[in-house]
Amino acid sequence: MSASAPVPPVAARNPTDRRIFVRATLDLGDVLLRPWGREAAELEAMLDGLVAAAGDPLIARWNPFPAADRTKAMTWVELREGGWDRGDAASFAVLGAADRTLLGAVGLRWVDRADGLAMIGYWTLPAARGRSVATRATCAVTDWAFATADARRIEIAHAVENEASCRVAHRCGYLPEGTLRESHQYGDGAYHDEHLHARLAADPAPAGLAV
């Protein structure tokens, strides 16, 4: 499935087929959200950025993934590409519009596709931090999922110590719903309590988002 393949309007599709993530590029002006894939024009920069991201201490702790070299980074990209092919996961590279350098990533996947329940996650490289890149990208993917894939509820779960991720969740209108005790094993090998946030399709859009 190519990024330019025509997609019928949601209303014209079978209701059982509405909850499919279809490749799209989201243009935020100075930032582009591009589907991960082997055919991406920016693939070389993406691979180099992934290797750098995998070695960043904060990413290695809170969002670890195996990309110690270009070969492993390509394997990671191919797995993200498979999610797009199946329509059950939407993984975006966050790129600088001017130079196409990798700034971060946003990933969305179905938790319960039939029920419209999805989960979203994100990370940014050091050069993108403090610039609202994660907030803007996460808001854009959230709105896109509600508008095009019939998502009903999207959740964010992050380690309670990850205050930066918590700020992004709040700024994107994801309301706090509680603490999940020893919910997930992170890159340090320990199980951490997580804060659970969620946003419903019916919730109002967040106000005052910095652009």
Rank of each mutant, 00 (worst) to 15 (best):
A5Y: 00
P6I: 03
A11C: 09
N14G: 03
P15M: 03
T16C: 01
D17P: 02
R18P: 06
R19S: 10
F21W: 04
A24M: 00
T25G: 06
D27S: 11
D27N: 15
L28T: 09
L28E: 08
G29E: 13
D30Y: 07
L32P: 07
L32Y: 10
L33W: 10
L33T: 14
P35Y: 07
E39I: 03
L43A: 10
E44L: 05
A45Y: 08
A45F: 04
M46W: 04
G49M: 06
G49D: 12
L50P: 10
V51T: 07
V51W: 05
V51I: 07
A53W: 06
A53S: 13
G55R: 14
D56F: 04
L58Y: 01
I59R: 04
A60D: 11
R61V: 09
W62V: 08
P64C: 10
P66I: 10
P66D: 13
D69R: 03
D69V: 04
K72H: 14
A73R: 13
M74P: 03
W76L: 06
W76T: 12
V77I: 14
E78K: 05
E78C: 00
L79F: 01
R80F: 00
R80A: 08
E81P: 04
G82W: 01
G83D: 03
W84L: 02
D85F: 00
A90T: 09
A90H: 00
A90F: 02
S91R: 08
S91W: 05
A93Y: 04
A93T: 00
V94M: 00
A98P: 02
A98W: 07
R100M: 06
L102N: 14
L103R: 14
A105C: 13
L108K: 05
L108M: 15
W110H: 10
A114P: 12
A114G: 15
A118C: 10
Y122K: 01
L125T: 15
A128F: 12
G130T: 15
G130E: 13
R131M: 10
R131C: 09
R131T: 14
S132N: 15
V133I: 15
V133H: 09
A134I: 13
T135N: 11
A137L: 10
C139E: 13
T142G: 07
W144S: 00
A145L: 05
F146I: 09
T148F: 02
A151Y: 01
A157G: 10
H158T: 15
H158K: 04
E161Y: 08
N162T: 00
E163W: 03
S165K: 04
S165F: 05
C166A: 13
C166Q: 06
R167M: 01
R167E: 08
H170V: 14
C172H: 12
P176Q: 11
P176M: 06
G178N: 00
T179F: 00
T179R: 15
L180D: 05
L180P: 05
R181L: 02
S183C: 01
Q185G: 06
Q185A: 12
Y186V: 09
A190G: 05
Y191D: 03
Y191E: 06
D193S: 12
E194G: 03
E194R: 04
E194I: 01
L196V: 10
A198C: 12
A205V: 04
P206T: 12
P206K: 13
L209W: 11
L209M: 14
